[in-house]
Amino acid sequence: MFQQFSLNHVYFMLTGLGWTIGLAAIALIGGSIAGSVLTLMRVSANPVLSRIAQVYIFVVQGTPLLVTLFIAYFGSTYLGFTVAPLTAIAVAFSFYAAAFLGDIWRGAIQSVPVGQREGAHALGLSGADTMRHIIIPQAIRIATPPTVGFFVQLIKNTSLASVVGIVELTRTAQIVSNATFKPLEVYLTAALFYFLVCFPITLFSRRLEKRLSV
């Protein structure tokens, strides 16, 4: 009854890898947009906005992504509307990533020395111009390593998508491992696929850091 672990299975896992890459793209784009909004709220001079962002970060960082995903997918039905699996994933991952990126990016912005802001003010730059031309370019350099670290983590977290019925890389590995009863070989192959996706991102981050520090 059990099959040999073959190239056929590896092809099947490649279709799972396609889903994983797609999900990662959704998570990174959605998370970056939501994270930018949250960062701006967090560093804003308006105490109400800043407080809302703080409470949001506090709640979402303290909840496992799996639970967020469960609520987004199954919970929405109880509120009277049906969401597609991909919508639930986009919402849950964006909300989750926003809470982390919001804090990472706030930290980066606030760690730019105060003198920079004061200098820009003395030169007569407006608040928005100071942010755009002085603070953010310097903050990006500080934020790159933790942001990339978080992105890589987020890519691996897409394995949770199987709970909403998406057959991504980890789920294909589970299915193949249960058809072949060769978990070691199958999961090592899956690990290799994840590495092939994550490693170039880490390399790119190194290069970006070098370029920005010159």
């Binding site: 469960f70 997918y73 199954f74 039905t77 199987s162 019925g165 057959v167 789920r171 589970q174």
Partner: peptide, 17 residues
């Protein structure tokens, strides 16, 4: 056929998936 992990078996049903 909708493939599901074992923890999702009952939620998938009760939430009309």
């Amino acid at each position: 056929i909708l493939d599901q992990v074992s923890q999702a078996r009952i939620p998938n049903l009760t939430s009309n998936k």
